[in-house]
Design a protein around this nucleic acid. Structure first.
Lengths: 179, 179
DNA sequence: TCGCAATAGTTGACGGTGCAACTATTTGCG
DNA sequence: CGCAAATAGTTGCACCGTCAACTATTGCGA
C-alpha cells in the first residue's frame, strides 16, 4: 500500500481535483451566463437529454447522472420547465416515472451554445496537456471511478494497464450534514 | 494543437473529475458525520487553520483557498464559531482583517479524526492507482492549475452589462439564475 | 392473488451559498 | 497631506439543494 502519494497527498489531491473542476465549471458558467442567461447546471440537464436519442430521460436517471438528489432534480426541472426548455411527459408503460423531454427552444439553445462551451472546456483541459497526459488523465479517472463493489478489502491491485472500458456507476450517498 | 482528447472529451473529463471529487468528498463527509457530527466543509476550515503554524488565518484567505465567497465564509465561520471550534480574533496590524483562530476543542477534534480521514482519502486515490499513475495525476493536476494569466482573448463582450470588472480567475461567479 | 417491500417523484422545512450593497480601514498617488 | 480607489468583512435577500415524510405505482414471494 505504499505509493508515490504520501499519506497526506491524497487529501491534497482531493483539493487539487476540486479546484480544477471548480475553475473550469466557473468558466463555463460565465460563458453560459453571458450568452444565454442559464447556468452550467441547466446546461448539464439539457445536454444529458440531447445526448439521448429521444431527448428524454426519467427524473431519477437525470438525478443520478448529474450527482443530484431526487428532490433537487424535482426543483431544478421545475425551474427549467418554467423557462420552457424542457417538458414533463408521461412514461408509456411505468406510471411512476416522469420523463423529462427537451423542447425545441431547449434544443436550439444547446446547439447554439455548444461550440463555445466545447471550446472553453478544451481550453481548460486538452489545450494544457500533452497527448500522453490527456490519455493518462482519462485512464486514471476511469480507474478511480471503477466500482469496488461494497467495502473492498482486495489487495488485487495487480498492474492492469490499458483503458478499461467498463463503466458502472454506483450511487454516491449524499452526506447528511447538519448545521 | 491536437491532442488525444476529442473535442467532446473535455466535457466528459469535467464530469469524470466532478464525479471522482464528489465520491471521495461524500465518503469523507460520511466519516466525519458519523464520528464527529461535522461536515467535510467544517473539516476543511479547521484543517486549513491547523496547517498554519499559528492556527489562524484571515477570513479572505480561508474563503479563497476553500473556494468559497466572502459572504459564504462569513456564515460558515459563524456556524463553526457557534460550535466553539474556532474564534474570531483581531489582526495585530490591519484592523480590516478578522483572523479566524482554531480553539483547543477544534484542534483536538481534527487530531482525533485525522487518521481516519487520511485513510479514507488514500482509499479513494492512492490505493487505486499505481505509483506511476499517482505521479502522473499529481503533475497533471499541477499543470492544469497553472495560471495562464488573463483568459479570454476575445473582447467582444462590450454589451450593456455596464462596467463589469474583469475578474482575474479566482472568484467563481455562481450563476445568478432567475426563476 | 394478496400483501409488503422497493421504486419514482413531490413537498415542507431548513441549512448553505452567492451577489449587491454597505461600512470600515488601508493604500496609492498627485 | 488629502482624497479616491482598493481591500476586508458583514448583512439583506433570494436562490439552490438536501433530508424526512408522504403518495402513487410496481415488483415479487408465499
Amino acid at each position: 500500500m505504499d505509493f508515490d502519494f504520501e499519506y497526506d497527498d491524497s487529501l491534497a489531491a482531493l483539493r487539487a481535483l476540486a479546484e480544477v473542476r471548480h475553475r473550469i465549471w466557473a468558466a463555463l458558467d460565465r460563458e453560459l451566463q453571458t450568452r444565454e442567461k442559464i447556468s452550467m447546471t441547466w446546461f448539464e440537464v439539457l445536454g444529458s437529454l440531447l445526448q439521448n436519442d429521444e431527448g428524454a430521460l426519467p427524473m431519477h436517471e437525470l438525478a443520478s447522472s448529474l450527482l443530484s438528489s431526487p428532490s433537487g432534480m424535482t426543483r431544478l426541472v421545475d425551474r427549467i420547465e418554467r423557462a420552457g426548455l424542457v417538458r414533463r411527459t408521461a412514461h408509456p408503460s411505468d406510471r411512476r416515472v416522469t420523463l423529462v423531454t427537451i423542447t425545441e427552444p431547449g434544443r436550439a439553445l444547446v446547439e447554439r451554445v455548444m461550440p463555445e462551451i466545447k471550446r472553453v472546456a478544451v481550453e481548460g483541459f486538452a489545450s494544457r496537456l500533452s497527448a500522453k497526459q490527456a490519455r493518462d488523465l482519462r485512464s486514471i479517472l476511469e480507474q478511480l471511478l471503477q466500482d469496488t463493489g461494497g467495502i473492498d478489502s482486495d489487495e488485487t491491485r495487480a498492474v492492469e494497464d490499458g483503458p478499461t472500458k467498463r463503466r458502472k456507476f454506483a450511487r454516491s450517498p449524499r452526506a447528511a450534514v447538519r448545521s
